[in-house]
């Protein structure tokens, strides 16, 4: 790790101000950034910690929406998002207890790791990502592996999840990291069904439109029969081929539908 300045703003406005200037970097829970810095693969000159900003922390629910502050830890979401059980369950299975006690939803979404869990939840739920500057629909937010619509210095202050009628997240673990080798989040709303896939594609989190159409017409496992995912464009690595990941997408989607009921 190289030397850096450390800022601990108490308000979003102060945080935004502190992020001006070259090589400043927002710090959520640090579960990705700090190991990267320890390996000297990242060297921000200034870290701006978001964890002391009261307005960015906590979970609230009303009128069919669960609203989560950007600096809320996975553990707090697991404990506090009972109004959206599939989301709370997802949060409760990210990493291990140490990760869940530090890692934050804003940090995870901003990083958009292609194997992370939250992007699938946000995309399937049709969540709204609220920043210091604007509101971004999840469909417009994710932009390939590690890419997002965020501008330099823009902070995710809040994420609003419309609570679906039924939802479930199925994660198949990569044996070493226990990130999602493939994860599928299925959400059924009055407007239809959304299916978001993480871990599988070289383009990062994405929706499986054929499955959405089939499930919107008939929300049952049988509706998925005969549907297959193309292995082209799927990640292929030492933990599984593209064909295996494509196969898992179909299996996990079916299981998520069955579990969502």
């Amino acid at each position: 790790m190289y030397e850096f300045e450390f800022e601990t703003p108490a308000t979003v406005a102060d945080a935004v101000a502190a992020l001006q200037g070259d090589e400043a970097q927002a710090l959520g829970g640090g579960q990705t950034l700090l190991p990267t810095m320890k390996q000297r693969l990242a060297s921000p000159s200034r870290l701006v910690s978001l964890s002391g900003i009261a307005e960015m922390s906590g979970v609230s629910a009303d009128a069919g929406t669960v609203s989560i502050g950007g600096a809320t830890t996975h553990g707090a979401v697991a404990a506090g998002a009972g109004a959206y059980p599939a989301l709370a369950d997802l949060a409760g299975h990210i990493g291990d207890p140490a990760v869940r006690n530090r890692g934050t939803i804003g940090g995870s979404l901003a990083n958009n790791d292609p194997s992370a869990d939250y992007p699938a939840a946000a995309l399937a739920s049709g969540a709204t990502i609220v920043t210091n500057a604007r509101e971004i629909a999840a469909d417009d937010f994710f932009d390939g592996m590690f890419g997002t619509a965020l501008n330099e210095g823009e902070i995710i202050t809040r994420v609003n999840f419309p609570v679906p009628e039924a939802a479930n997240y199925q994660k198949f673990l990569q044996p070493a990291s226990r990130f999602a080798l493939v994860g599928v989040f299925v959400a059924r709303t009055s407007d239809g069904v959304r299916v978001a896939v993480t871990g599988a594609s070289e383009t990062g989190v994405h929706r499986w439109s054929e499955a959405e159409a089939a499930l919107s017409a008939n929300f049952s496992a049988s509706a998925l029969e005969g549907l297959a995912v193309d292995a082209d464009g799927m990640i292929s690595d030492l933990h599984g081929s593209g064909a295996y990941r494509a196969h898992l997408v179909a299996v996990l989607t079916k299981r998520a539908v069955m579990a969502a009921g």
Binding site: P175, A176, S177, F179, L238, H239
Partner: peptide
């Protein structure tokens, strides 16, 4: 679970607990 994997160029792919189970 465990497998130490090199690529053809001799780079260690399973070089951390992220990839070595």
């Amino acid at each position: 679970l465990e497998g130490c994997i090199y690529d053809d160029d001799g780079q260690l792919l399973s070089a951390s607990f992220m990839d070595y189970a």
